[in-house]
Nucleic acid binder design. Structure first.
Lengths: 196, 196
DNA sequence: CGTTTTACAATGCACTTGCATGGTAACAAG
DNA sequence: CTTGTTACCATGCAAGTGCATTGTAAAACG
């Protein structure tokens, strides 16, 4: 066997380039050539690791999702001593495009959605991402004592608010203050027991 | 002067074709040629009415927004005898992709958003559309007696919920029942006086 | 050593893209 | 009838697209 290369590592590096291009230049901006240039490799390399463009895009989107989820878990784990009550608002604000990193994520997610509206494979991926996010939010709400019988509705409701706050904020139709006010109102409406 | 043609009418007809293509084949599916074919005219005709593709797309998006707003107003006006209390939930459900027409609208709006993330002109248009929608929702909430001091927050909150319910429903990650349950929960949380 | 498999690189191809150009047909104004 | 303006249509073009093909260098294996 020839040159030993970490296959998956290379694919992830290319996926990073795809995500950057999706965020900065949109879906049309991610061609085989621009991706290769962004990743600093030749077009042949990209073709070597992905047999078709569709596979490349889908891999990048999936990678982006897993990566986001991993970073979230990592951040939650980085504060093991902080009680859930103090942590969960921080977690939810991380899902809003308030800094450059999450702005990029929101842009990628928009490109993802617009593709999912057309491409069934992307649609399945996006639906799965929604399911995972909802499950995660549900677990956070359970952490802070939202009663079991309202967990379904509360998590659906909160995910909708988070999703709906994202785009107006990203486009500048809302200020961060207005956005956070709505988030706080939503969190306040949850039936959280205030035991110390 | 030559053949008398309703200039604006032709542009709107082409805009309809653009919206159809955006909804069915996404942003990449709306090329000058496909638009011409969808509208049943030659490519030269499209070029005659729009000097550049960007102008065509932006016009179509603007037209789509105005059209949606007009249809909404028309539907509200079609029931002049119904009290606001009974009308406003109907109005809000119309903004969710529950039937084919509003599903098309939601798909167009997604294409709009993904373009707005890249193109500043589209961004301005989209931000304006959010502002208009929020103002309209605010007026509806005022109609049903939401107190003045909570109108800002309530309208922002409700718009976020509507926006956030749209995409998971469109992608099949939520059922219509789950979606409407969240909407009803949001409406129930408003401080509406229940006079008689 | 030689062979084989992997990891690219370079180029070519058919196709689509937005746009420019040149022409033509129709109709109103003089 | 002539002229001028409008409303197209047909075609051409450079650039970009995804993908196939071919070539090459390197390293593990016999």
């Amino acid at each position: 066997m020839p040159k030993q290369v970490d296959h998956e590592e290379r694919r992830r590096a290319i996926a990073e380039a795809v995500l950057t291009l999706l965020a900065t230049r949109g879906a049309e901006g991610a061609s085989l050539r621009t991706v290769a240039a962004e990743a600093g490799v030749s077009m042949g390399a990209v073709q070597h690791y992905f047999k078709a463009k569709e596979e490349m895009i889908l891999f990048a989107l999936e990678y982006g999702n897993e990566n986001l989820a991993a970073r979230m878990r990592q951040r939650m784990a980085a504060h093991p001593d902080t009680p859930p009550r103090d942590l969960y608002r921080y977690f939810f604000t991380q899902l809003l495009p308030l800094d450059e990193e999450s702005r990029r994520g929101a842009r990628v997610w928009m490109a993802f959605l617009s593709r999912a509206a057309i491409d069934p494979a992307a649609q399945r991926l996006a639906a799965e991402a929604y399911t995972n996010l909802t499950a995660f939010v549900r677990a956070r709400l359970a952490d802070v004592g939202v009663p079991a019988e309202s967990l379904d509705l509360a998590s659906h409701h909160l995910v909708a608010v988070l999703e709906g706050l994202r785009y107006p904020l990203l486009l500048g139709a809302r200020t961060p203050e207005e956005t956070l006010a709505v988030l706080d109102a939503q969190l306040a409406s949850l039936s959280i027991p205030d035991d110390r």
